[in-house]
Design a protein around this nucleic acid. Sequence first.
DNA 1: TCTCCTTTGTGAGCACTGCTCTCAGTGTCA
DNA 2: TGACACTGAGAGCAGTGCTCACAAAGGAGA
Lengths: 230, 230
Amino acid sequence: MWHTVRMTAASLRARLRAEMSDEIKAAARRHLATDGANLSLRAVARELGMASSAVYRYFASRDELLTALIIDAYDALGAAAETADEQGSPVQRWLAVCHAVRDWALANPHEWALIYGSPVPGYQAPRDTVGPAVRVILALGRIVQDAATAGQVEIGEPVGGRLGEELAAVAEEAAPGAPPQLVARSMAGWIHLCGAVSAELFGQLNNTIDQRREFFEFQMRGALAWIGLR
Amino acid sequence: MWHTVRMTAASLRARLRAEMSDEIKAAARRHLATDGANLSLRAVARELGMASSAVYRYFASRDELLTALIIDAYDALGAAAETADEQGSPVQRWLAVCHAVRDWALANPHEWALIYGSPVPGYQAPRDTVGPAVRVILALGRIVQDAATAGQVEIGEPVGGRLGEELAAVAEEAAPGAPPQLVARSMAGWIHLCGAVSAELFGQLNNTIDQRREFFEFQMRGALAWIGLR
DNA sequence: TCTCCTTTGTGAGCACTGCTCTCAGTGTCA
DNA sequence: TGACACTGAGAGCAGTGCTCACAAAGGAGA
């Protein structure tokens, strides 16, 4: 009996705490749009009608708040990528994931900048961030793995040297069974994906390309052609 | 006579002013390594042994100082790219420029983050930055233009629609005479280049790829294959 | 030579920041 | 009831960007 009582009491406190944390994060996310990575903890507290020192009951420092936002952003992006990968040919699946990533970034530009922009100096990404960070890559890895087992891919020349060994290790982890050179090209495709989204978001295409979505798909199709998916 | 006197006097004042500006920028660049984009103007002034308010005689605001650093960074990167482009086949020239960009970024990571990282919120890039910003792209444009006129390139399928029209306009400006689809692929290659450098610099390759230079060249060669240079 | 006046530098000051500390209120458990 | 953990408030510290009044310095023009 008292077990359940104690548990509910404890879980109630924990729930309240989690709700308060969520409210703080939501307010911080709102301020992210105007202040960017150097958001004001005091302004967040003001918006919530609480003393700035109270925020420190939930996040030990501003960096810890930012870390929580980063983890949430990685998770949201990873979820968007995973739900976009449904069915179809490898090319269709890959393109769907790419567009999902871009769409999420366009909808949440400041959070994209938080995770794929220049890292805050002195800020060291904790271990907690690596898990959510790789969800997009793993989603892409599943596609190439499926394509490899189904024979729906043109395998390029193998990569030799120490890079080849490294790539074999990466392949073993991200897409077991897929040839290392395919994994290498997929990683390059992922990097191109990130670069294309960042270029669009960070203003590198201003006054040059207006047909953003078309140009993005053009690039991703090009990467796909080199990767060898079909 | 008095012309020259007045001119030398004026130019002397201007020279002293320029030297002081350079010293401030040099100190700011030093602080960039530790503080990143949110460097402390007061700390810079302290290092130079002057009052913080004196810095405002040379730069109207911290943003203006950052803008000056950004312009210098663009110029340095552009110069590095241009001097690397010497001779050889289009592939060799393109790869040389890519490696020059990467080498410069590795040597000046914080300045790279300043120009290709997430933009500072509320900071609007002035017109003065667009000139130096395009030097790298123009260097790449010259290569594909030369390759196109020399027939050392495999022209891909033309791009239709409004994107095709836009690309034609871009081609007219960046590489007159080169087919739009080639310019489009070159732009994609440039974006991939920026993405690859940023990924390496911003820690996306940590605990995954150690053979950085080899993997970078692997990616750039892949982009080249798709672009069609030879 | 004697004023003007522009330029450069100083230091005080304002409003803001992240963060720490002490103190008070509240609810939980034995 | 009393002990205690938890959550909040407010003051305070050192630091920030930036403004302002003031002081030296030195060339320009009479």
